[in-house]
Amino acid sequence: MTTEKPRAASPAGWKADQVEAWYQTLDTYAGAQEKFHWRHLQSPYAKQVMNLQCNFCHQGNDPREESPHAVPIAQSSDWRGGAANFTLRKMVNPTETCLRCHGVFPGENMGLPAKWEETKESLESADTPNGCLTCHAEQFRTVRHNVSYLNAKAIEEAAKTNSDVCFGCHGGRHWYRISYPYPRHPWPDMPTDTPDWAKDRPSASDARFALPVPAK
Results as ranks from 00 to 15, higher is better:
120 K>D: 09
85 N>Q: 11
95 T>I: 08
105 F>W: 11
128 T>H: 10
58 H>W: 11
207 A>W: 08
45 Y>Q: 12
144 R>L: 06
129 P>G: 05
141 R>W: 00
216 K>H: 15
156 E>R: 10
188 P>V: 05
169 C>D: 02
172 G>S: 01
22 W>D: 15
168 G>K: 04
139 Q>K: 12
113 P>D: 10
207 A>V: 13
163 S>C: 00
175 W>C: 00
214 P>F: 15
100 R>A: 06
93 N>S: 05
87 T>S: 10
29 Y>M: 11
206 D>S: 15
165 V>Y: 01
54 C>L: 09
141 R>S: 03
53 Q>T: 06
190 M>C: 06
202 P>Q: 12
14 W>N: 15
216 K>Y: 15
28 T>G: 13
106 P>W: 10
15 K>Q: 14
112 L>I: 09
137 A>E: 15
90 K>R: 11
39 R>Y: 05
64 R>G: 05
146 N>H: 08
3 T>I: 13
142 T>M: 04
65 E>P: 00
6 P>S: 11
84 A>G: 08
5 K>M: 12
181 P>F: 08
60 G>D: 08
68 P>I: 05
97 T>F: 11
75 Q>G: 05
113 P>H: 12
125 S>K: 11
200 D>N: 14
158 A>I: 01
48 Q>D: 12
8 A>S: 14
151 N>W: 01
155 I>N: 03
154 A>R: 04
132 C>K: 07
104 V>F: 07
195 P>L: 05
31 G>Y: 11
1 M>W: 06
91 M>P: 05
160 K>D: 00
93 N>D: 10
101 C>I: 01
80 R>W: 02
80 R>V: 04
212 P>Q: 13
188 P>C: 04
214 P>A: 15
203 S>L: 14
182 Y>S: 02
116 W>D: 03
163 S>L: 00
79 W>G: 03
66 E>S: 06
110 M>A: 10
53 Q>P: 04
85 N>F: 02
121 E>F: 03
67 S>L: 06
167 F>N: 01
82 G>H: 03
68 P>N: 04
174 H>V: 00
4 E>P: 14
153 K>H: 02
173 R>W: 00
3 T>C: 14
132 C>R: 07
99 L>Y: 03
22 W>E: 14
136 H>P: 07
109 N>E: 14
41 L>W: 13
86 F>Q: 14
78 D>G: 00
59 Q>N: 07
189 D>N: 11
99 L>K: 09
53 Q>A: 12
149 Y>H: 08
17 D>W: 12
148 S>R: 02
87 T>K: 14
16 A>L: 14
189 D>P: 01
91 M>Q: 08
188 P>D: 04
47 K>P: 08
173 R>H: 05
6 P>W: 12
62 D>G: 06
163 S>K: 01
108 E>H: 14
63 P>L: 06
132 C>E: 01
191 P>E: 05
20 E>S: 15
175 W>P: 00
121 E>G: 06
160 K>T: 04
75 Q>D: 04
120 K>C: 06
83 A>D: 10
11 P>D: 11
65 E>C: 01
184 R>T: 05
160 K>Y: 00
